[in-house]
Nucleic acid binder design. Sequence first.
DNA 1: TTTGAATTTGGGGTTTTCCCTAGGATATAA
DNA 2: TTATATCCTAGGGAAAACCCCAAATTCAAA
Lengths: 215, 215
Amino acid sequence: MIKVLIADDHNVFVEGIESLISGSADIEVADRCYTVEAVEARLSLSPVDVVLLDVSFPHVEDGLRLCELITQQYEACKVVALTMHDDASLIKRMVKKGASGYLLKNTTKVELLQAIRSVHQNERYFNASITHILLNESPRGRKTATGADQKPNLTPRESEVLSLMAQGLTTQQMATRMFVSAKAVEFHRSSLLVKFRVPNTALLIKTAMELQLID
Amino acid sequence: MIKVLIADDHNVFVEGIESLISGSADIEVADRCYTVEAVEARLSLSPVDVVLLDVSFPHVEDGLRLCELITQQYEACKVVALTMHDDASLIKRMVKKGASGYLLKNTTKVELLQAIRSVHQNERYFNASITHILLNESPRGRKTATGADQKPNLTPRESEVLSLMAQGLTTQQMATRMFVSAKAVEFHRSSLLVKFRVPNTALLIKTAMELQLID
DNA sequence: TTTGAATTTGGGGTTTTCCCTAGGATATAA
DNA sequence: TTATATCCTAGGGAAAACCCCAAATTCAAA
């Protein structure tokens, strides 16, 4: 019997998933959790095989953090991300955080059960539409809607500046933290703009996020 | 017996709603429709009392149009909007289009049934969190791990500026495209910084992307 | 050794961003 | 009508970002 934990703060969803699973002979709903804290508490009590995790739990960042926590602390426990968002970068981020499967919430019963069984056997599962989304964005050389290119090779300093920029620091603040002059920082940011082929900070941050270079 | 039509393109939701309703003695699910066309076809056959309408069907504009169509052509048929979005302006737009009730998808069974019964009796129904939103009060002022806050309600101009910023346009370029002065554009960007509680463009873009407000 | 990439610092300039203030339009409520 | 609020529109000024230039240092590779 595959024990499944449903982690979703949307009651209707929890009911729906439970309904879809209820007919199955080899899968059972071990528990339902409506908060991140509840999930952590539940997992510390006894193991489950698969967690069906809503990415927005309640916010995207929470879902990502929880996914990372589960896959790191409970290796045997697989995570299937379940969400409304068909955003390619979000899917990639979830997978990066350890999710074994990713389903949209308009998934079918067959697909849901198949996904649970697959990840339980250490396989990965993405439904057709997800695959389509990933294929539409990632092929080599192909341009996305915003023209996001391949990841440029960044120097250590450039990565550092990019990371600090993503935290909202100004040039002066970065210079102080890095123990260099503001001019040095400016040079690195300028290099980033060139390497990413963007005209300003706004597009730099957006592009870097799409390329998973910023969390 | 109150006949309910579920209009949602997300299978899990439909299942969940049906499951929540199934225990009720005075409410039954007359049909489920996964597309706008299916809803129109179904309503033209025989009347239902209440339509549980997902606003994103599949897009917000579709939901709004369908809501207007239903309430105009089938006066006896009430519409309860059901959505993930707790966006105040969206709620107002739905109500303007004739929706009698508005529920978030994290609603409870009790609330869902109560909403159906209320609108069937020509009353309106909004749950507590919706009321809070309409009163412009933040229902919960908590912060996520990354400090990402709730989606602020943006004015049309603010949304426009945010979108153009995400495309890498400068203030001057935005001003030209929007037929206003650069100073007007600057004000809207400034408003965005305040609403998102960020100090500069870099964090604004990052936060907006995390909140799925930028593609 | 030479070459090259990365890092650092500086000067000087333009453009953009950001913060303050405030008038005018519009819609709703008292 | 008079408030009251929200949005849009700007101006001035200060700060930051952005772009050109040039030059010294380090460190690894050719």
